[in-house]
Amino acid sequence: MMKKDNISKDLFIKAKVKEDEKDKIVRPKLTALQDGWIRLKKNKAAICCLFILIIIILLSCFAPVFSKYKYYETDYLITFNSPSPDHWFGTDQFGRDLWARIWYGARISLIIGFAAAFLDLFVGVTYGSVSALIGGKTDTVMQRIIEVLIGIPHLIIVILLMMVLPAGIITIVVALAITGWVNMARLVRAQILKLKNQEFVLAARVLGTSNKEIIKKHLIPNTVGVIVINAMFTIPSAIFTEAFLSFIGIGLQEPAASLGVLINNGYQVLHNYPYLLIFPAVVIILIMVCFSILGDGLRDAFDPRMRK
């Protein structure tokens, strides 16, 4: 063993430092969305559901356009026709073509789902992030308001609003958004508060990054996952609520069609013509199942820590 003073300085050679490569990031940069997508692609069930959903969305866009029949077109000579090559899903009590009606109805249901989720997202994210970023008294007041609102059962308010406002798609979307944003706001606030205290944000701040940059580079990308996942679960629940309201008779009214209206209509004549219930029921179940599995897949992909 060498003694301490035996080590001469010339045993050490200064390593060559490539100044320009010091800051080089070895891995290609990925945004939060790309990263999630790569992981989602490995989940076969979720991808399969994504494809089914895309097919359903395409059908709801184009099937009513290319069908020979219009969703509101009545023909009293062909009422209650069973499915046939001419009317793929049969006709209802007014001789309306069920194929055209189902895809038109699916279109309305999907529009309601997406619009409600988008409004939710907009209000919730704004409220949650403002509350978390400003902090202090503003945050306290905003949180008190949320704590009062969170106890209100959504359905009660939605039903009351539906009774007061004129029936229509916009009413449903507004009613759903008024009650729905609270959850999103809470999630976003919690996520931002958690991030604010984490070391990498502190590091960025120490390095002199401006608040704006921190929000853009660190807070938003790390919150996108939570937002996407929550929005993904909002869509099917909005579709369900609309169908439910239409089923108990306070949602959309005939001759407009949504999946809920069709199911309600089919239920009235279930005894003799079960296909009028079963076809729209299958479509709504398919939509709900796919959204639910895709939502789970997205949760696993965006937030691996939450994987269970």
Binding site: F247, L270, L277, V289, S292
Partner: peptide, 22 residues
């Protein structure tokens, strides 16, 4: 678990009524 939360309960109720009841 997936079907249970996805099938709207009124659809299920109607189908049960039709098949088991009627």
């Amino acid at each position: 678990a997936v079907l249970g939360v996805s099938v709207p309960n009124f659809v299920l109720a109607a189908l049960l009524q039709y098949f088991i009841g009627l």
